[in-house]
């Protein structure tokens, strides 16, 4: 059984909603990323999206763009490094599922078959590719299924009649984009958001999760009532960004990690 399915089943039995932080791998460095993953789990994260830094992150707002730039320019982080971080975090005792979030080109350059062979071996349970709509995902989806990796699709408020077709092919959960636009903290969500979430709910038996712009406890709680999981990206990445001076100073490292842990605990409330 895929670890994502098991986690959702356990959460359902406990009557809880999944909290799913997103972190950019290699920001500020590989060792710290592993420590951050451990911290996120300890503070109550139920799954983690591991973001692969990319030179042209089209779906991302300024916060995640900056994190990608730091990871690429300071540490030349590659997709292979990101996958290795997952394995190292797992070896260190982290139990929650890992979902790799990557733009398509790094996967395409690695070679699709070799990529799935690798992520399966390294303990990745799911995959999100934001620039791979269903029209282009046939080969990737077949390989993912064969490797028991869940290819998690995005649906947007503009998807309309595409929602049913996208959801019918989904595995793991359906990722609902909260609003038009890129990732990043926002006060307003799409005005038809609840209707949109209902449409997705009716189209699938899988869990539905919401992301893009969720940044505080109030929003986590509000969407936790209508979704099975809530994804928090930019707000976590921003917290990490603010903690970088602490994280990179050996004597203040724990204080930096605590700031991140406290923020996750605060999101959960």
């Amino acid at each position: 059984m895929n670890l994502i399915d098991k986690t959702f089943a356990d959460l359902k039995a406990a009557g809880r909603t999944a909290l799913m932080p997103f972190v950019t791998m290699g920001d500020p460095d590989i060792k710290t990323s592993i420590a951050i993953i451990q911290t996120l789990e300890k503070s109550g994260a139920d799954m983690i999206e591991l973001g692969v830094p990319y030179s042209d992150p089209l779906a991302d707002g300024p916060v995640i763009q900056r994190a990608s730039e730091r990871a690429l320019s300071n540490n030349q982080i590659t997709i292979v490094d990101c996958i290795q971080i997952a394995e190292d975090a797992r070896t260190s005792g982290v139990k929650i599922p890992f979902i790799l979030f990557t733009y398509f080109n790094p996967v395409f350059q690695f070679g699709l078959e070799a990529f799935f062979e690798l992520i399966q071996r390294k303990g990745i349970s799911g995959l999100i590719i934001p620039d791979l709509p269903m029209e282009e995902d046939e080969e990737v989806r077949a390989l993912a299924e064969a490797a028991n990796i869940h290819l998690i699709p995005l649906v947007a408020p503009t998807s309309k009649e595409r929602v049913a077709r996208i959801s019918s092919k989904a595995k793991g959960f359906v990722y609902c984009v909260s609003s038009l636009g890129v990732t990043g903290v926002r006060a307003d969500f799409h005005k038809g958001i609840d209707e949109f979430l209902n449409t997705v709910r009716e189209a699938t038996d899988l869990p539905i999760c919401i992301g893009f712009g969720i940044s505080n406890h109030e929003q986590v709680e509000r969407f936790g009532k209508v979704c099975d999981g809530v994804i928090v990206g930019s707000a976590i990445v921003r917290t990490i960004e603010d903690a970088i001076p602490l994280l990179q100073d050996e004597s203040n490292r724990e204080a930096g990690l605590k700031k991140i842990g406290d923020f996750v605990a605060e999101l959960k409330g």
Binding site: A59, P133, V155, T158
Partner: peptide, 12 residues
């Protein structure tokens, strides 16, 4: 070619 874009743009 193809259409490698976020889902939000597909309908447009």
């Amino acid at each position: 070619g193809g259409r490698y874009v976020p889902e939000t743009l597909m309908t447009a």
